[in-house]
Amino acid sequence: MIDFLNALTLFANFVLIPGLAYGSQLALGALGITLLYGILRFGNFAHGDTMAFGTMTVVLITWYFQSIGISFGPLPTALLALPFGIALTALFLILSDKLVYKHYREVKAPPIRMVMASVGVMFVMNGVVRFIIGPNDQNFMDGERFIMKARAFKNATGLNEGLAIKSSQLLTVVIAIVLVSALFWFLNKTRTGKSMRAFSDNEDLALLSGISPQRVVLVTWILVGALATVAGVLYGLDKSFKPFTYFQLLLPMFAAAIVGGVGHPVGAILGGFVVAFSEVTVTYAYKKFLTYLLPTEYAPDGLMQLLSTDYKFAVSFIILVVVLLVKPTGLLKGKVI
């Protein structure tokens, strides 16, 4: 029995909790991609760097708050800075729409042109973020770091294995749930949200029924900015902020969006967790886990690892390929909002 509990704790500590937090972060990022895809109809390559930009503004404001002595008790100060960061990011995105994407919408350019334009925007954001804050790691987590420490858990329960829960992990999950519920309420219940869904379903019909496209585009960018900033900040609080890693998140996020069904918000969330948990479970070495569960004589010699951690990020891509081959529309049927 003790062995079983040990195994369970081990699994929770190394697979379940990190996977849950990472999945929530990916889900928020994938939501932003999928929203843009559903309404403006292009895959945004600049999304990773949008997250980096949003996080950067939050980091800067956090530093300012810290310097004038504002803090948020046991919670990270960054949460206070979040609304300002969202506003700035949304402004930047709307500006980029005015300067770049609007033109291609007007001339009805093929979606692939929009995708390429987003690559250009990605370059610019890349440069801006590095220019302002530099390419280095920034740690902006303050407040209480742990809800439960591994050693404290061991002492309290008498188990061999520790269980650590970081406050940033709990925050991530809670904020993700709140944000996603708010988004769904907005899309399903409010007038603007409904008009956005209508626009996504059938643009021409929506225009005929008097929906203002400018308004839809504007609100979309604001939502995308909010989602990207929150996802970026949560990721940064949990791990750390470094512009380059945000660029690398692009692939898992896209994978999540496509796996779930592009343009489908629930799908994006589902996809986020599928990708996150596959990455963690496939690369985890089950040796210790099995040693607890199996009788001693069957205890494994090898690491019992399906795939070396070197290929961790290949996992998201393999899932993507499998889904594309087996069910090209994604797990939930995509392209509806």
Partner: peptide, 18 residues
């Protein structure tokens, strides 16, 4: 790999070796 944000999978594998 340098420059990744998250190393929990790597640490998980390392610790499993005992």
């Amino acid at each position: 790999e340098d420059g990744k944000a998250d190393y929990s999978a790597e640490v998980g594998a390392l610790s499993a070796a005992g």
